[in-house]
């Protein structure tokens, strides 16, 4: 009996912690389908499910409408030169206190969509090139002892001790002198070079554990080092490489300081830096803002769903080693 209560207590504790941990996520979603009016009335309680079903009653939009969707439609109609009562004047769904305002998501997508596209472009390019370079370098260190290899190894290793804080200002100046300000290329390059050290470190350990006989056999067969990387290293270290890829993808996805400093154009901003911009607007549309945050979170959650095992293992292993 006491055992039952003990187990129940443990579960209760974990659920309490989870409840708090998930609360911001829940609130983000709950607000993302509310209009400002609804948000002011009830900030975080969910809208009732009855409002989820489309209300069929429709009416012409009022010119000074406060709801998000109406505001946009009215603005567009006014820009098209229409007046209330004209034939093309928008007719909107009559929104009640319970209506779910999914149009917040559409509005948010208009801004966040570009950011997401930019971020995916930067992240994928950076991850692919970073892993190509670091696999090659790790192979160099794991398989051969070339003259100067030890020096090069410490050349990389010392960087692990070097904190990034002092580098930021000269890095900005360097990028400016290279005419890389306001370009996604800079983010890609910094993404590649920033990931090298940790990746080389982990991949070298891994490649050293591949049986060396395989490389010797490949040498006898006359396979060049490049072919050895392609046909031995890559197939055998697939899991490590994919784990590293995911970790780097997340870090590029989250990085905001560099894009915040070097990107000037709104259309080139990456996600994290773009969200800051979304937050900084003077009159806050809470629903749209939260919808933007929700959209920003979704891609990573989707990736997570498909690569759950890699994730859990990668975080446990990578964090201990790194």
């Amino acid at each position: 009996m006491s055992n039952f209560w003990k187990t129940a207590g443990q579960h209760l504790f974990i659920w309490a912690v989870l409840l708090f941990a998930f609360f911001p996520l829940y609130v983000t979603f709950a607000i993302s389908v509310k209009s400002n009016k609804q948000f002011n009335n009830q900030p975080f309680s969910p809208l009732s499910l009855s409002g989820f079903v489309e209300t069929l009653e429709r009416k012409p939009a009022a010119p000074g409408a406060y709801d998000t969707k109406e505001t946009i439609l009215v603005r567009e109609a006014l820009e098209a030169g229409l007046k209330p009562g004209d034939a093309g004047w928008p007719v909107v769904r009559l929104s009640t206190a319970d209506t779910w305002h999914w149009e917040n998501w559409i509005v948010a997508w208009d801004t966040v969509g570009t950011y997401i596209f930019n971020t995916i472009l930067v992240a994928v390019t950076a991850v692919v090139f970073a892993l190509c370079f670091s696999t090659a370098a790790a192979f160099f260190f794991a398989r051969y002892r070339m003259p100067g290899a030890t020096f090069l190894w410490y050349f990389f290793l010392v960087l692990m001790l070097m904190p990034g804080v002092a580098n930021l200002v000269p890095l900005f100046i360097l990028l400016r002198d290279m005419n890389l300000i306001n370009s996604l290329l800079a983010l890609v390059i910094i993404g590649i070079s920033g990931a090298q050290v940790v990746q080389i470190f982990i991949l070298r350990n891994f490649i050293e554990e591949i049986p060396q006989d395989m490389f010797d056999a490949a040498d006898v067969d006359g396979a060049s080092p490049f072919r050895q990387v392609l046909y031995i290293v890559l197939p055998m270290s697939g899991s490590v490489i994919s784990t590293l890829a995911i970790l780097q993808f997340i870090s590029v996805w989250n990085d905001f300081l560099l894009p915040f400093i070097i990107i000037r154009d709104d259309s080139l901003l990456t996600l994290a830096a773009g969200l800051i911009k979304l937050d900084g607007e003077y009159v806050k549309q809470w629903g749209e803002m939260m919808a933007g945050y929700s959209i920003a979170s979704l891609p990573l959650v989707l990736i997570f769903l498909f690569t759950m095992r890699l994730f859990v293992r990668g975080i446990s292993a990578g964090a201990v080693k790194g």
Binding site: N254, F256, L275, S297
Partner: peptide, 13 residues
């Protein structure tokens, strides 16, 4: 893991 998947910037904002 799920709360960690959410971008840090979203959590912050």
């Amino acid at each position: 893991v799920v709360p960690m998947i959410v971008p840090g910037m979203v959590g912050l904002l």
